[in-house]
Write a protein that binds this DNA or RNA. Structure first.
Length: 198
DNA sequence: GGTCGGATCATCT
DNA sequence: GATGATCCGACCG
């Protein structure tokens, strides 16, 4: 496993969101190994992006503090009071960009992911195991405990994967936001079954 | 296939 | 007191 080079992440969130397609996220949280291939991302550009948690009007707060930190940190926040969402901090110190990881395809540890996703029920379709930011975090065991974690060391590592050709990348508006709704900052692999919406 | 509402809480007004 | 980078199950056709 080769951790992603920090220079890959020290660029604008828009470039990083595209570059992370095909990369691997390796979780050993809780002692069980689970690996996902990233198939869907969204860029949040920071100060100039009204939809970002670090939009200029918000200012620097306790929640978005990690986004102002070093590229390669994990920014984890709670969504709708229920879910956790995992971001990769991009850009540079004091320039707060981030990439939301929206969907993974299971590569290893699929039984661990199933157990985390459906602990008290019949397992659902594998297509739904990590297809959405809340599901992705749940499948990998990511919680607020990983906020600020450096993604080049266990228990959560961003690693190189197989490259995704330009032709296979679809780009469009982000999902679930109410500001800058038309900015085309969502990226996913074309026709991929584990993408959250098609 | 689709649409709708509830869960649940950190954050901000 | 309102909102939200979501998910799921219920209901309708």
């Amino acid at each position: 496993m080769t951790p992603l080079d920090a220079t890959v992440l020290a660029r604008d969130a828009e470039e990083v969101a595209r570059a992370l397609l095909g990369a691997l996220i390796v979780s050993t949280i809780g002692g069980d190994r689970a690996i996902g291939r990233i198939v869907e991302t969204e860029a949040y550009l920071g100060l100039r992006d009204p939809a970002s948690h670090a939009a200029e009007r918000i200012g620097r707060t306790a929640r978005n503090e990690v986004m102002y930190g070093r590229p390669g940190l994990a920014y984890v926040y709670r969504s709708y009071g229920i879910h956790w969402c995992l971001n990769v901090v991009t850009n540079a110190v004091d320039d707060p960009g981030a990439v939301l990881l929206r969907a993974i395809e299971p590569v290893a540890g699929i039984d661990v992911m199933r157990q985390r996703r459906w602990p008290d029920a019949q397992p659902g379709a594998d297509r739904l195991i990590g297809s959405g930011p809340g599901r992705l975090a749940q499948a990998l065991g990511v919680t607020g405990a990983q906020n600020g974690h450096s993604l080049d060391v266990p228990p959560l590592v961003l690693a190189t994967g197989e490259a995704v050709s330009r032709r296979r990348v679809v780009r469009g508006p982000r999902i679930g936001i109410s500001r800058a709704v038309d900015w085309p900052l969502r990226f996913h692999i074309r026709d991929h079954p584990h993408v959250s919406r098609r």
